[in-house]
Design a protein around this nucleic acid. Structure first.
Lengths: 210, 210
DNA sequence: GGCTCAATTTACGCGTAAGTAGATTATAAA
DNA sequence: TTTATAATCTACTTACGCGTAAATTGAGCC
């Protein structure tokens, strides 16, 4: 991960900072277009035009169109990991942990909607090796949700017949938001996070019913 | 919908039956390949080879590659509608209706996994007009789930703060199964339907907790 | 002001796959 | 058995977009 020109203390050299910035801008423009038109319907010429540069500029920073896609997908999965790791680090009791996680997870996914939608859709266009690698990251993430649910079940706080299925149901409900959420829609991100996390807590058998 | 050569009583002429069969086989082969490799990575030559015919055979029955995709997507949404319509027709009390719907919905989606996965992924490759049309069908479907939840809430059987969000959560959890389910996996379709429908019932505030 | 090297561009080659025109074969009627 | 018609195939055109080689610009330096 760390560049050869990385400085002591984690600071990057000017050169690397510039390179990172170029990559960032390129990814930002690309994710918009991939989200809007799909991977195959987006030409790198269109990305270049949106960036105000020419195609070989992109090739100076990314080896191929597929590598650009991999970067987007990886960031998408990474932010999901951040959401659960941040909660786990707090060492809260399971019920509070799940509640906090649900909110953060939904919020994060909605804020990075395009990355997630592109990852889910364009999986098959990843280089096979990258696809496996990122797929494993995704499995890891679901394993973490599962562990959270099992901790709650063990503590007698949740009711979960099959924590694996419950984890997948939760992940599915949240991932699916990326396909219907529109920034100009009825509800804000926070309102959706508020309401959907209630559904998730009930799903885990946490909230009192009837 | 009905062909000019449709016979009295809804029976099709020999010619139309043959044509329908050809379309069916073509769709079956295509959905496998689209599911496996994605739309853009699948050539019609590959579809033809799998069918044991040549490419113009396909063009004799479908106007374009995109039309073939539209057929797959439409069937995917149509079977979801069948699942809920079949339950609504029984006029059960809300709690039983939801339970039956959840099971049927999951089962149907898993049995038609490939259609659903392809639809979700390849939306952007549909002809825009077809995309809108099928998108409306999908919205209709979610509206039906929502109506079911609201009927239950009105009857005091469910607990649903926001039936729209709950419907989307349920739909998401089930749709997502198409991305992780493998026929040779740990659980059978029925086992998944059994366990996941429990999660869904809890989500709707139906099952007793703690 | 001219020199060097890096960053960026212009312009193109090349593979690929959708869609099609015309040849060919099967079907069935006369 | 001949002939008309429908079904299917072979072989082609065409368009498009990824990736790149060679040309160009510009920033820092002597």
């Amino acid at each position: 991960m760390s560049s050869a020109t990385e400085r002591a203390g984690g600071r990057l050299s000017m050169k690397d900072e510039v390179a990172a910035l170029k990559r960032q801008h390129t990814v930002d423009a690309t994710v918009d277009l991939f989200y809007e038109n799909g991977y195959e319907n987006t030409t790198l010429d269109a990305v270049a035009e949106k960036l105000g540069v020419s195609k070989p500029f992109i090739y100076a920073n990314f080896g191929s169109k597929a590598e650009l896609l991999a970067e987007i997908c990886e960031r998408g999965v990474a932010i999901a990991h951040d959401a659960i790791d941040g909660v786990t680090a707090l060492e809260l009791p399971p019920a509070q942990a799940l509640e906090l996680f649900a909110r953060r997870y939904i919020t994060t996914i909605l804020e990075n909607q395009k990355h997630i939608a592109v990852y889910v859709r364009e999986d098959k266009n990843l280089d096979p090796a990258e696809g496996r690698r990122i797929g494993l990251m995704r499995s890891d993430f679901f394993a973490k949700i599962r562990a959270l649910l099992e901790a709650g079940a063990a503590a007698g706080e949740f009711e979960s017949d099959d924590s694996q299925i419950a984890a997948l149901a939760i992940g599915g409900a949240v991932t699916w938001t990326t396909f219907w959420y529109r920034p100009d829609g009825r509800l804000s991100v926070d309102e959706i996070a508020e309401r959907m996390s209630r559904s998730i807590l009930r799903l885990a058998g946490l909230l009192q019913s009837r």
